[in-house]
């Protein structure tokens, strides 16, 4: 059980790292949202699953309830994270920020329309 939860924890930390590096490296704010909102969600899922498994080590009512609460956190984040991402995107669209595109694809789009 310890090994499984350690592996899950490390996978989750890897996803978190991807999210942080992605926030730094991406060129504009729309594409920054891709790693920010969702690699974090996956990292939360992984780390919380690891913690819940480790928590069930000595089995009793209290630990089961704690693990259920952890699952509740994960479910809550799975509902709210897309909503927050969508709210930020919506604010950007209403402010009139255009998405960053590559030059040549932009020209192609202009020709196509």
């Amino acid at each position: 059980m310890n090994i499984v939860s350690t592996i899950l924890l490390i996978c989750g930390l890897l996803f978190f790292t991807g999210g942080a590096v992605g926030i730094i490296r991406m060129p504009d704010f729309y594409s920054r949202l891709h790693p920010a909102g969702k690699l974090d969600t996956m990292g939360i899922l992984m780390t919380m699953t690891a913690v819940a498994l480790y928590n069930l080590h000595d089995f009793s009512i209290g630990t089961v309830l704690s693990s259920l609460k952890i699952i509740l956190i994960v479910a809550f984040l799975f509902i709210t994270s897309p909503t927050a991402t969508h709210a930020i995107v919506d604010a950007g669209v209403r402010a009139g920020l255009g998405p960053w595109t590559k030059e040549e694809t932009k020209e192609e789009n202009d020709l196509a329309t």
Binding site: Y30, H34, P35, G37, K38, T41, H86, V89
Partner: peptide, 12 residues
């Protein structure tokens, strides 16, 4: 929400 959760796509 499913579109937003699968990374690579965000519902605008």
């Amino acid at each position: 929400n499913s579109i937003t959760l699968t990374p690579g796509t965000i519902t605008v």
